[in-house]
């Protein structure tokens, strides 16, 4: 087979995106600890590298040299597979997210390639499908550990993810109706332009309720505070990954942070106009994308260290009795609006 620059560029892109995700997870861990520290009037990690920036890498090296433990009564095969399932699901979801305009790499390529691993015409549903696969990693981890804390953590997590997945899906559906497309690239492009010259045509302004539902369900999907029941320390030790150690624990940790990045990236594409933004030239558009994702992630961290954890029954009640009806009404309202506009 002869050398094809197009394919080479694409493979390079996949490599870059994968490593970017790993690095963003490392950065998120650092940011989480830093923001948490400042919120609690501490300094946080500040010894390894500039302002502790290399702390996550030191942690990973430490984890690599730790002993891999497995409970005697655990199911060996599923115990080993579970963290892999979690991490794969987390990374796979990012493959359909576009983060910039087409590029020829400054004329190196004959045809422009999109800054995205793949543009499928059912992208929004793909994200939804992969999110529903992520549950299995957690459930398998909890079950195969053969420990009551793990099992309870996994059951809680699965129940929570299933409950909030409905609202999550309905919020996505409303955007799909507005855009008339399931492709994230087209949804982003539909948000270009501005009303009266200064308000960008982002769907967050058309779908404020949907955005709210999405953000809340997104926090619940990623199992973060104030919805972090799967690992409610006071009751469940560490939840589904109680029995995990060394790198298999690190994989769960990685998956959690990559999931956060994905939720933020999807929110950016669906509601905040993706890579669209003023001032910057086209080839730097991805800077806007990163900036928006960063702001959402900062918001998540901020929320985690500000709000206390709910009670479990409150979480379920909120999900089923408040969030779901709001999402359904939002969907109906959007449908009516779309029909009326036609």
């Amino acid at each position: 087979m002869s050398f094809n620059p197009q394919i080479a560029a694409h493979l390079g892109l996949i490599f870059v995106i994968f490593n970017m995700l790993v690095l963003s997870a490392a950065f998120m861990v650092w940011m989480e600890r830093k923001v948490c520290a400042y919120i609690q009037d501490r300094k946080g990690p500040n010894r390894v590298g500039f302002e502790g920036l290399l702390q996550p890498f030191a942690d990973v090296i430490k984890l690599m040299f730790k002993e891999q433990l497995r409970p005697k009564a655990a199911d060996a095969l599923l115990f080993a597979i579970a963290p892999v399932v979690s991490a794969c699901a987390a990374f796979a979801a990012f493959s359909v997210i576009p983060f910039g305009t087409d590029t020829t790499l400054f004329g190196l390529l004959d045809e422009p390639i999109p800054l995205q691993v793949t543009d499928v015409n059912v992208a929004v549903l793909v994200i939804f499908a992969i999110a529903s696969m992520g549950v299995y990693g957690i459930v398998l981890a909890g079950w195969s550990s053969n420990s009551k804390y793990s099992l309870l953590g996994a059951l809680r997590s699965a129940a929570q993810m299933i409950s909030y997945e409905l609202s999550y899906g309905l919020a996505l559906a409303a955007v799909i109706m507005l855009a008339g497309s399931l492709s994230l690239r087209e949804i982003v492009l539909n948000q270009s332009g501005a009303w009266w010259g200064f308000i960008p045509k982002w769907y967050v302004f058309l779908q404020p309720v949907g955005f709210f539902v999405y953000m809340v369900a997104g926090v619940a999907e990623t199992n973060r505070a104030p919805f972090d029941f799967p690992e409610a320390e006071q009751e469940l030790v560490a939840g589904y990954h109680t029995e995990y150690s060394s790198m298999s624990f690190a994989l769960f940790f990685l998956a959690e942070y990559v999931n956060m990045v994905t939720v933020a990236a999807v929110a950016t594409s669906l509601y905040l106009g993706g890579w669209l933004g003023p001032i910057l030239p086209d080839w730097l558009a991805w800077v806007w994308f990163l900036l928006k994702v960063f702001l959402i992630l900062f918001f998540y961290v901020w929320m985690r260290w500000t709000l206390p954890r709910y009670r479990y029954d409150q979480l379920m009640e909120f999900g089923w009795k408040w969030l779901l009806p709001i999402a359904v009404l939002n969907l109906l309202g959007t449908a009516a609006l779309v029909l009326w506009m036609e």
């Binding site: 499928v120 549903l125 529903s132 549950v135 299995y136 996994a154 059951l155 299933i162």
Partner: peptide, 26 residues
Amino acid sequence: APFTAVTQIIIYAGAIMVLFLFVVML
């Protein structure tokens, strides 16, 4: 038929099998 494929994952692999798993676990 990507749409059918994705709905297959969401509905069967995602939703229904999670229920199966719940029953088996509980």
